[in-house]
Design a protein around this nucleic acid. Structure first.
Lengths: 214, 214
DNA sequence: TACATGTTAGTTATCGTTGACAAACTAAGC
DNA sequence: GCTTAGTTTGTCAACGATAACTAACATGTA
């Protein structure tokens, strides 16, 4: 009690966001409190407000951190001159590892942001999702140009299915991690989904719709 | 103030669950309070406890109501001797209508249940998801038996993709309903996904995996 | 000296929940 | 049919817990 440790603004902000992440990961969004953050960081509640203006600011910082770390995690798969399907599979693997490492924080944060009233939080969550979809969509577009992906595929729709595969796997995994391992479910879905992207050797051309009647 | 309306237990419980649903739909899970329910029902908070033992009980009733109404909504598409792909498309349409009608309540409730600590709430949410996946999976299995769906398709994986398509569409729709109409996105994804289910006329047999090297 | 980073000790607001009492409906006895 | 007792459904007025946040003050650092 004699002397308390003083740390600079930036370090404390990092600690605060980290604490917020851990609290949500272990107890859901309801567990995210200034008290909880203060306890994890090892200072009083009032000290938290030296480095963050409000709880809402913490949430915004957390969304930002999730966005940065997620795109950092999957960045290895995005560039490169590899085959588009390989890149997508690699993104899936890296994304799955990221979710396991961070205990599904991205899903929880996005789901929470989507039902927030505050416009800045909503906007931050929305942009995170849109950015992810753009990235996947862009890879698919490139794949089509290079004739690695079927030209009848609509990139935006394919990106949403890709994103949905992860959401679906995460939901089951959050309910019961041991019964529904993320990786296995993701791989099983990918094996199936890739068949709808693959460039059929006999080029299908314009028989995309209306192929099957009643 | 002279005389207050008295209603029976069952009616009040319905009103409570309905109020809970509306509160979450309009203000997110944080808006679900006993006070809010009491205000919507038109009684005092204490009166709520005559018909419900706790807030947790309200959540359990709500999950149950969501499950019943959702399966009621899509039941029209499940039975019947129609083509499996038609049944799936029909389920998708009905599910989309249900979500629009109930303002995405199912997604919010599931996402919330997944991060609850309380085991009964978690269990109820988990069972809802598993029941849905089983239903879709079963239709796909039947489709394979009837040679309406490619035999290399793994039903459980296909069901998860199907479920994920809806999750993905709902998330964007929650962020911006006008910019991301549920129906349009769902149809676009379905058009693509069905190609991976379709029974190829030249039966593909056992070339499912390892088809494409680097 | 000045500023950044802490603490202490609150404030205000809202939450879920409960106990004590009142009024309405239900059923039985006369 | 009228009284009467019991049960159900409601209100009122609180309770304790906890939330976000703040003013006043202390202390370490440049």
């Amino acid at each position: 009690m004699a002397t308390h440790t003083r740390l600079d603004h930036q370090t404390r902000q990092h600690q605060i966001v980290e604490a917020a992440r851990e609290l949500i990961a272990s107890g859901g969004v309801d567990a995210l409190t200034i008290r909880g953050i203060a306890a994890k960081v090892g200072v009083t509640e009032a000290a938290i407000y030296r480095h963050v203006s409000s709880k809402e600011a913490v949430i915004l910082l957390l969304i930002q951190e999730v966005e940065e770390s997620l795109f950092q995690a999957i960045s290895r798969a995005t560039r490169s001159d590899r085959h588009a399907l390989e890149r997508l599979e690699h993104i899936l693997q890296l994304h799955v590892s990221y979710i396991e490492l961070r205990q599904g924080i991205s899903f929880v944060v996005i789901a929470q942001a989507a039902q927030f009233e505050e416009p800045r939080v909503r906007s931050a969550g929305r942009k995170l999702v849109e950015k992810y979809l753009s990235l996947v969509s862009e890879i698919i577009s490139q794949g089509i140009e290079r004739k690695e992906i079927n030209r009848t595929v609509l990139p935006s729709a394919a990106a949403m299915i890709f994103f949905g595969m992860i959401q679906s796997a995460v939901i089951r995994w959050l309910f019961d991690p041991s019964a529904h391992p993320l990786g296995e479910n993701a791989v099983a879905m990918w094996q199936l989904f890739r068949t709808s992207l693959e460039h059929s050797d006999d080029d299908v051309d314009q028989r995309s719709n209306e192929s099957r009647g009643n």
